[in-house]
Structure formats: C-alpha cells, structure tokens
Design a protein around this nucleic acid. Structure first.
Lengths: 356, 356
DNA sequence: CTGTTAGCGCTTTCAT
DNA sequence: ATGAAAGCGCTAACAG
C-alpha cells in the first residue's frame, strides 16, 4: 500500500491540516515545509486522488465523447485536446459513440457517472437533448467541431459556411455548373456547408438538381456509395463537393475502383487534409481546419467553465479554415487540370496559395 | 446535487447496509428490494463512483498509454480496446506518449496517480523499466501490439516473425534480391520483423547490404526520408519491405513526390492495411493484423488480471496475421505486375488469396 | 500559522 | 436478513 497523509503526520509530527494545506499550496513555516518535503520524498507519498475527489467533488478528469475514435480526424483532435488537458494536470476519459446517437447519450451518462469535471463532445448528430442531462448535473460541456442545435452551449468550430463558400467559388471560377454534393445532414456544421452549396448555386443561377445531392452519415462507406451512384447518372456531374474527410476517402476509393480519372473526368473539392493529400497522385483542393488550435481552444474553454462561475453566456469560438489548392479541379473552359506542382503541405501553406 | 444512499435510507426507512448490499447484488427480502428499486427510480439515484472507489480501492477505470493517439492504427486499436472495456463497465483513461520515452514513463505515473485498476500499453520503445513502477504499485499491465524486452509481462501481439517471413517469401518468389528494409529498432515487434528479413536473406544466400537497411522511429516522416535515400542510391533496390503502417504512408508519399511508378520501378510489401489500400491505385501487398481480436484480447486479459489472483505466469497471446495480396509486387522474371484486379478488402479476404 | 474536528458517500465487519 | 458503527484518505471550517 502506498503512503497516506497520516504517514506523513507520523513522520513529521505535524497535523493533517498543516500537511494538507502545504500540499495544496498553502503557506506554512519553511521549517515545516522542509519537514513535509523530506517525508514525502522518503515515503514516496502521493496524494490519493480518489479521496481528494470525494471531498472536493472534483476529479480532475474530463470526458471526451467522440463520434468515432477510429477516425483519423478524431484521433488528431483528441490528441490536441488531450495534450492541453494533460499539461494542466487533467486526465482524459474517452468514449467512442460509434456514430450512433443512442451510444452517444449512454456515453454522456457514463461520463457523468464517472464524475468527470467537464465534457468535450465531438457529436454524432445535431440533437441537443444529449446536453440536457449534463446540464442538469451542472457539468460543463463544450461542443467541438460539429455544431448542434440550439444556441445555449459552448462551441468551437471552423467557419464552415465561409469555408464551404470558398470551395464552391473555386469550382465556379473554373466554370463548373454540374456540381454534386456529398455531405451529411446530421449536424449543423455539415448543414452550414450544405447551405453554402445551395447559396452559391442560387447566386449563380444554377438550378439545384436533387440527384446531385447525397446526404448520409459521415463515413467512408457513405462517400463511396454516393460517388458510385453519381457516376451512374445519365448526366454526370463535372465536380463533386465533399464536406468531410471520411467522405473524401470513400469518393477516391469509388473512383479508383471504376478507374475514373480525376480531375480529368471529375473535379473534387473537400474538407480536411490530414495525410491523404500527401499520399495521392492528385492532390485534393481542400479547406484545412486549424485542428490544433481548435482542440486547444475547446480544452481551454472547458477548463475556464470548470473553474469559473457557472452562469455565463455560451461562447462560440469560430476559426477560419485555410484553402489548400491542389490539382483536383480542372477548368472546364481550358479543359485541362490546374498544373500545380506536387508540393508538401508546408510548402503550400507558406507559399500563400491559400489565397484564392 | 444528486441523491445519495442516505436519501434512499430516508425514503425507504432501511439501513445503509441493507441498501448497499442490495445495490451490490446481495440478498434482501423481496419486499425491501422493491422499496429500494422504487426509491432509486424516484430519486434518480446513482452510486457515487468516487466514494465507492475510495473504500473498495478500485476505480473501474483502466489506462491506455499509447505511442501516438493521432496514428490511425492506434486509433483503431484504442477503439477495440475501449469497446470491450466499456461493455464491462470500465472507463478508459487515455494518454498520448507522442513517440517519446520520457513522456511514456510520465504517462504511466500519471495513470498510477489516477489509481487506474490496470494499464494497457502500446509502447514507444522496448525498454522494460517503464513497467517496473506499475509492477511496484501492483497494477497489472498488458503490453499490446509492440513487444518490449524481458519475458515477465503479459503480451498480445501478432506473430510478427512469421508474418514478415511470408512477406519476404513473396518477394523472393518474385525473384527479388535487392530488397530494402524500412523499419524501426525501437521495439521487439519490429525487431522480430527485422530478424525475418535477415533470416530470409541468409537462407537465400543474398548478401546483406547495409545501405538497404533503414532503421528509425515508426513515423511517416521516417518512412519518407528512408525512401528518398534509397532512391538516391547508385544501385536502387527493386523492392522495399516496410514494417509498419506509418512507414507505408511515408514511402508512398516519397514515391509520388518523385513520380516514381510502383510497382513498375519498385515493388512494395508492408504491414497493416487499414484504409490506405482502398485508396491507392496500386494496392499494397500487406500482412494484416487482426486488430479487433488483438484489442479485445488485451482488454480481456487485463480484466482477468484485475479480478484474478495476482501471481500468475505472464501470458503471451500471439495472433496470426493474414496476407492480403495486392498488386504492388512485380515478378522480375516476367517483368510485369501481378494483374490482380481491384478488389475490396472483404472480397480479397474471402477469396482466400491470403494463402500464398 | 497550526491543530482539532467533522464530514464527503460508500462498503464492510460484526452483532442482532 | 438487517442494522449500527467504523473507516477509506483527504479537505475545510473553525478555534487557538
């Protein structure tokens, strides 16, 4: 068994209160402080977080409830969130919602049961009820990356609408009009991107074609199926706008499988880079979200809520995304691909190509 | 504040002991059981895990210490581990070691501090000292995926040596002799794969060329640099054996960047499929590890240790890996690529092509 | 600044 | 089968 504060008491002859106070950063006589330090050293004393938690009602642990831990995007987000939290002495409990709403709700209950001090949720869907139970338990929640319905929650996302506008503008600038959308309608972040799609079409007086709009869960499989279906249309789209990383993967998979050349036969724009762009012959033109900033901002905001006063207005922190131009879009007038050379992501970023 | 067992006491008129007993599956009169159930329902009572932990000295939480959470491979492993643990009512605390040994040790200390019941480690390196402190604290540890030095620890891995032999045999069967190795020497799982490389070369009387052997950390960057270097050699290898997923990514990135066609100019075999094979035009021939089985086995073994008697012999659970034949290897005699058609992973698996 | 005391919410002997 | 009481290790009043 490891040493307890009582052992320190025996060792030093001081009272529990004094020791506890010192251990929590309180002021004690330097003489006693030294005594305690020595005893701690000698006995390898480490405070029992459990006991501490029981009385303070704080666990120094936050829960991360994620739509899918096995998604690369999520993994990277979690890393950034976790790094920040760890640096502040907080542990990170993690739950995978497996893209299922029921599981997500169960996960939140589980976290509450585990008495986490706060929750960061990268949600499956837009339904806000899941936050209700956390709110009832007075456990602060920060929503990350995907927005959900309602206004009364803390939120950290990218500026999805304007990011999507840029992508659509890029297609328009290259004279595309038959533009398909592969997206989700389950959360408001995707909804914002969809809205941008519609708005640009309307602005350009391009009629919306129902058969060009594919909405499903944000998974690779869905992206794959959507692309397959689009390629079967009598009048194929000349470009496709993908609103998520997992969609990108599925789209490319479908294209490869049918030996459809891109961008020659179809142009692609999408969201999120990650490793994919470095691996493909054709680099996707994508909006890249500042994932590290977003992850840290979410963690930092949550800690603020945990420490701060309870009833403050919800904060919405919105980050600009950056356009990374690849060579996945051809100009229909010139009928040839943009001839951007292969460049590493860093080079592309620093060369300022993100300005359209 | 949520209801406590005391509230149940007031509500039912029973004693704390009786209520506690029932809540923990003990026998009470059916009449009283009903009383308690009703009160629990009415007050939305949920046991405070903290208080429970304090007295039982169990947190029903296990720690996962991972070399890198942002790696897709790790993310998938963590998902499987977590799913199993959650199904048994355990929470999962997670720490990212960021591929750094110091951080890994710090993480283990952190977990110990958080009083986890057990630890699953997907280690950065082979150094066994990190397990020492956990062992001293009598906290069971299961090593997953990457083996470390020493024999006295529980372990779940793939049969790395024989898997690597299969891959090398495949290259040999296609008459390759100039075979480069891109690998790590930081952990024993990679070391096993390296040993297979050496053994096959020796068996085939192929001299080992130092310049063909690239050892570094298992990161995409390292794979990228190694491939670049190999391509600069006067006498280029005709094939490269990559021992890890992140290496695969880097290798393909380097090849793409220099516009080197594969398998035409260089054949590739590697470890781990995941999404990559579905995305590339050329499908890699890889050994696929049964990740779900491995993750669940590790979690299950850990739970066994947590519940079971302390001093039992360490268990080593080894899983066979499966060869997935792609079209990334050409036969040097025929000088043309294997003409496997594009197939989804499922199809490849069921068509039994994993038999060489 | 230091020590005494009373819990935090629960489990667990040990009587009854 | 039930209940009274002790105590897990720590913090937080409060009194000195």
């Amino acid at each position: 068994m490891s040493a307890t504060i009582k052992d320190i008491k025996e060792e030093t002859g001081l009272s529990l209160a004094t020791i506890s106070k010192y251990l929590n950063g309180g002021k004690v006589l330097e003489k006693n402080a030294q005594l305690i330090r020595d005893a701690v050293e000698k006995l390898h004393y480490q405070p029992n977080e459990m006991a501490r938690s029981l009385v303070t009602n704080k666990t120094r642990t936050v829960g991360v409830v994620c739509y899918s831990v096995a998604s690369l995007f999520a993994g990277i987000m979690i890393k950034h969130v976790g790094d920040y939290l760890r640096s502040k002495g907080y542990g990170v409990l993690i739950c995978d919602s497996d893209n299922r709403e029921e599981l997500q709700e169960e996960n939140i209950r589980f976290m509450l049961n585990k008495k986490v001090d706060g929750i960061i949720i990268i949600p499956v869907s837009a339904r806000p009820d899941c936050l209700r139970i956390a709110k009832d338990a007075h456990v602060p929640v920060v929503v990350l990356d995907r927005n959900i319905e309602g206004q009364d929650h803390d939120l950290v996302t990218a500026d999805n609408y304007n990011a999507a506008i840029k992508l659509m503008d890029c297609l328009i600038a290259h004279h595309h009009t038959k533009i398909a959308l592969i997206s989700s309608d389950a959360n408001l972040s995707h909804a914002d991107r969809n809205r941008a799609y519609m708005d640009v079409l309307r602005r350009e007086n391009i009629p919306v074609r129902k058969e060009y709009i594919c909405l499903d869960n944000h998974t690779m499989e869905a992206g794959y199926c959507a692309m397959k279906k689009l390629m079967c249309l009598d009048e194929r789209p000349t470009a496709v706008f993908s609103t998520g990383y997992d969609f990108n993967l599925g789209i490319i998979m479908a294209l490869n499988e049918d030996n459809i050349k891109y961008p020659e036969e179809i142009s692609i724009v999408g969201f999120d880079d990650l490793i994919l762009p470095s691996i493909l012959h054709t680099q996707l033109t994508v909006m890249s979200q500042p994932m590290e900033k977003m992850g840290r901002a979410a963690a930092s905001l949550l800690l603020k809520r945990i420490h701060g006063k309870k009833s403050v207005k919800p904060e919405h922190i919105i980050f600009d995304a950056t356009l990374l131009r690849g060579n996945s879009v051809i100009d229909l007038r010139k009928s040839e691909p943009q001839n951007n050379l292969w460049k590493s992501r860093e080079k592309r970023l620093q060369s300022g190509e993100e300005i359209v």
